[in-house]
Design a binder for these strands. Structure first.
Length: 469
RNA sequence: GUCCCCAUCGUCUAGCCCGGUCCAGGACACCGGCCUUUCACGCCGGCGACAGGGGUUCGAAUCCCCUUGGGGACGCCA
């Protein structure tokens, strides 16, 4: 009755939320948000053997982390059998579906035969005209047309026609009374008034079957849009062997959800040359028309680059809790109340690819180096370095102003007085303070470390150098 | 095997629908350089693609056909 657009995301709870599923969810969600429509979450748990509550929870967790919210649901298919039953009976009464008692072995033999004859392996419809009475242990199959073809007017791929000879009388309800995916999906989409079915490419062959169910029911067929799949670097369907699949693993690796979403939305969809999108940008600019037709390879490097950009453009309020969370997760000693936190984050923002990266770099601000990197000390702890460090120490003791500018000035005066280039001063100091060969600028480090942390580290380095001789 | 889909730099893509402005643009990666106390950031430059073949046309990345290549589906899984 209304023209509200209704989309849905129907994961099967047989594992975590993976990036492919996340992208499908994202597209459906964005389309609903863009058009002011509704987005439904539905759990397709009709595979009772493999469905688990942990998986359901993992899917919620993933969706929550990504910030993908839904307007209705979650609905569970296993709780909707009474609905399915009504529609199934209608089909049987109308002679559009029938009971079949062929055993799995018999059907397999049919498939084998078809294969041998160079045809698509399928059920041959031998029970179709037997007019079998409803009975336990029998499956219910749909009567599918033997001629003609079924057309999909795909929003993304354009018209697709599948010959009906390729579609067998598939099962709507199993012998144990559980409804199959193809049937449950149609009844759900129908009764939930779904207007747009946006899903992975791997479903194109299911679509004509589903259309046939709508037609047998005399129901209105929704619009379909099949988005190309996400491939691994070897150009096959993304799977476990390609490594990180679960969305939450990306959180552990220090990715921002908005960065993952940005990456995912751009994988297959485009808006001119724009690469960087905030969530708000996506909601405003997304369109089904601009989704490409070819599959895309998941590229960690590009995701990482995008993540760096999102970190760089992010705000203090956004980053601070995530940063703290990451410090915690990595067991890096720190003080969550430290007044320097904002300054540290700001300093690290342009130099961090991930939150993990940022947290690791932040360590130096909280704890003294436990050791000096061999390469770095070999390169920077030279003969004259001992005097340099002593000089810095001496000057630092005498200053009160530890602002970045004052610290820069201090370093420059050391250079001047000792007739050294900045590198000869900054190098040893860097190793003394961080133990590493790289870090932010020494002025910035000194200012953030303050005398109370700098002096002991200087003393330790001086002792280290004196011991070395 | 059968059916369906796809095809622009290594990767993501713009351009394709409505042929000329494209000896094909952007981004990631890579390589140089600048900046610089290190590492990053930033900036500048470079490398790098219309799968192949036929048409149609004055003209094709863009339209048509074939070939090749890739992906997907063929379950009492979803």
């Amino acid at each position: 009755m209304s023209d509200t657009i209704i989309t849905r995301f129907p994961p099967s709870p047989t594992g975590y939320l993976h990036v492919g599923g996340a992208r499908t969810a994202l597209f459906n969600w964005l389309y609903a948000r863009k058009t002011g429509g509704k987005f439904i979450l539905r759990i397709e748990d009709t595979d009772i053997q493999r469905s688990t509550q942990e998986s359901v929870n993992a899917i919620f967790e993933g969706l929550n982390w990504l910030g993908i919210d839904w307007d209705a649901g979650p609905f569970y298919q296993t709780q909707r059998f009474d609905v399915y039953k009504t529609y199934l009976n209608q089909l049987v009464n109308d002679k559009k579906a029938y009971y079949c008692t062929c055993s799995p072995e018999t059907v397999e033999a049919m498939r084998e035969k078809a294969r041998a004859e160079g045809r698509n392996p399928m059920y041959d419809g031998s029970c179709r005209h037997k007019n079998l009475a409803p009975q336990d242990g029998a499956v219910v199959r749909l009567c599918t047309p033997d001629t003609g073809s079924t057309r999909i007017d795909d929003i993304i791929k354009g018209p697709i026609a599948i010959p009906n000879t390729e579609i067998d009388d598939f099962i709507l309800r199993r012998s144990d009374g559980v409804y199959t995916y193809n049937f449950a999906v149609v009844i759900d989409d129908l009764t939930m008034d779904v207007t747009h079915v946006i899903r992975g490419d791997d479903h194109v062959s299911n679509t004509p079957k589903q259309i046939l169910i709508y037609e047998a029911l005399g129901a209105k067929v929704p619009k379909f849009g099949h988005v190309p799949m996400v491939l691994g670097p070897d150009r096959t369907r993304l799977s476990k062997r390609h490594g990180a699949m679960g969305v939450m693993e990306y959180q552990k690796m220090g990715f921002l959800p908005e960065a993952l979403l940005n990456y995912l939305v751009r994988l297959g969809w485009s808006y001119g040359d724009q690469e960087f999108f905030t969530i708000e940008d996506m909601k405003r600019l997304f369109s089904l028309e601009s989704i490409g037709r070819s599959p895309g390879v998941f590229d960690m490097e590009k995701l990482t680059a995008l993540n760096a950009e999102h970190i760089q453009k992010s705000t203090q309020e956004r980053l601070r809790p995530l940063f703290l969370e990451q410090m915690q997760a990595l067991c890096i000693p720190h003080d969550p109340q430290d007044p320097r936190l904002n300054a540290i984050i700001t300093l690290l923002q342009p130099r961090s690819k991930t939150l993990v990266d940022m947290a690791q770099q932040a360590e130096s601000f909280f704890v003294a180096p436990s050791a000096y990197c061999e390469v770095a000390s070999k390169k920077n702890f030279k003969a004259e370095s001992l005097d340099v460090l002593k000089k810095i120490r001496e000057k630092l003791t005498k200053t009160e102003d530890t602002s970045e500018a004052a610290m820069e000035a201090l370093l420059h005066s050391v250079c001047e007085e000792m007739g050294l280039k900045l590198g000869k001063v900054g190098g040893p100091l860097r190793v003394a303070l961080t133990g590493k060969g790289f870090s932010p600028g020494m002025g910035e480090m000194l200012a953030l470390l303050g005398k109370e942390r700098t002096l002991p580290r200087l003393d330790a380095a001086i002792a280290h150098l004196e011991a070395k001789g």
